[in-house]
Design a binder for these strands. Structure first.
Lengths: 230, 230
DNA sequence: CAGTGGTCTAGACCACAAG
DNA sequence: TTGTGGTCTAGACCACTGG
């Protein structure tokens, strides 16, 4: 008979989402204020605030002080991609992970790499190529540059056991990263490593990692398969 | 002289991030409880809670009741990709958007499409092909299937002016979507539309949109260029 | 200036899970 | 059972911004 439990912010969020989806509140509409909604739901304003903030973070509401809260006209869909360490990605699917370091050298990077990493013209960088395997099958080909000035201790690291990615995640702090998706046709060597041919188009992910204004590493991972996101 | 302003949750978050990055708190470490941190920062527990929740949502902390809060051992990096309507994406960069409907027919979809959209074997679907242009240059090629049983009113829609995507966003409610990134080599016709050749590898995004258990639309967008994410 | 969201507080109770 | 995070409340003040 009586309402035993209090109104939770999830309750409010669900109700708000329903009203948006049912077009009870239409795109561009101004919705009631937090105070009004709190009265309607019989809860504290903070609870409404929590709910509306969550919905706004999903991009379905636009909130502005003094103005109020509007239903977003063009909800920008956001897809959150999880980027686990490859070993974890493979092991999470029950596969056996292995990693093979193919190349390791200290050299002057090409101009394109130097530019993207904002390296000095005279700076050398560590060039790594590696293959990631799932159940002994090629899973991804890695082509990496590491700014050795930013991470000098990597010179002494054994990267045949622990992958460069795991070593860097554990040893080198970073503050931000860029991500670029693309497609490419592999060179003969890459194709051979991945067990495919030059005729195929491969999906690639490039990650450029920064510690403040210092580039740490630029890595391109090339996959045979497509990648799904939630 | 005196501390004029109160401690904000952003202050706490910044401090927590510093301690994680400086390895004052190392991966796997249990950090102080909310009560302890609140005492240390001289603020309410709710403020600490807000800050720790934000950091945990970024994946750098693991929080569990009774256990406490730990620094994540393997912070799963999350990249949030914004997926705007193509017209907005182009216009946001100062380009002039145009849209050309190339094909529109009602037909039985191939088995692969039928399977992914969970359509009945006898169900027809609306097949659309379109080209999106930026400053009169080909920008993306669209290949779309629409479940007409789920969105019957699209049969009467003029999709030469408003793109199918914008029409659907405005008219067809949806509850969830899947996203798949991939690479492909275009067929001769697609290559011609995009002003490229079959020799190039193209980046593609597939989106499958659901309204509860009913598929609304399956669309594949093929781009010449790479896509960057923050 | 006024109205709206943003946040802090102090206290309270709940929910979960290790022991 | 107990300790920890999760949440709600009622009230207060702040911050931004349109008028």
């Amino acid at each position: 008979m009586s309402e035993r439990s209090r109104t939770t912010w999830q309750d409010v969020r669900a109700d708000v989402l329903d009203r948006i989806r049912s077009r009870d509140w239409k795109p561009g509409d101004l919705i009631p204020t937090e105070v009004e909604l709190a009265a309607e739901f019989g809860c504290a304003r903070a609870t409404v605030n929590r709910a509306l903030r969550a919905v706004a973070e999903d991009g379905l509401l636009d909130r502005r002080r003094k103005i109020g809260t509007r239903v977003a006209r063009h909800p920008v869909r956001r897809a959150t991609m999880r980027i686990p360490i490859l070993r974890h990605e493979i092991e999470a699917r029950g596969g056996a992970y292995a990693h093979r370091l193919l190349q390791r050298e200290n050299r002057l990077p090409p101009a394109a790499v130097r530019g993207r990493m904002a390296l000095l013209p005279t700076a050398r960088a560590l060039r790594l190529r590696a293959l990631h395997l799932a159940d002994d099958e090629p899973y991804a080909f890695e082509d990496r540059w590491v700014n050795v000035d930013a991470v000098p201790t990597i010179a002494a690291a054994d990267l045949t056991q622990l992958s460069a990615n795991e070593w860097l995640v554990a040893q080198a702090p970073f503050t931000s990263g860029d991500l670029t998706f693309g497609a490419l046709r592999p060179g003969a060597a890459t194709a051979a490593h991945l067990g495919t041919t030059k005729d195929h188009a491969l999906f690639s992910i490039e990650r450029l990692t920064w510690n403040d204004a210092t580039a740490i590493t630029l890595v391109r991972l090339t996959f045979q398969d497509r990648k799904s996101v939630v």
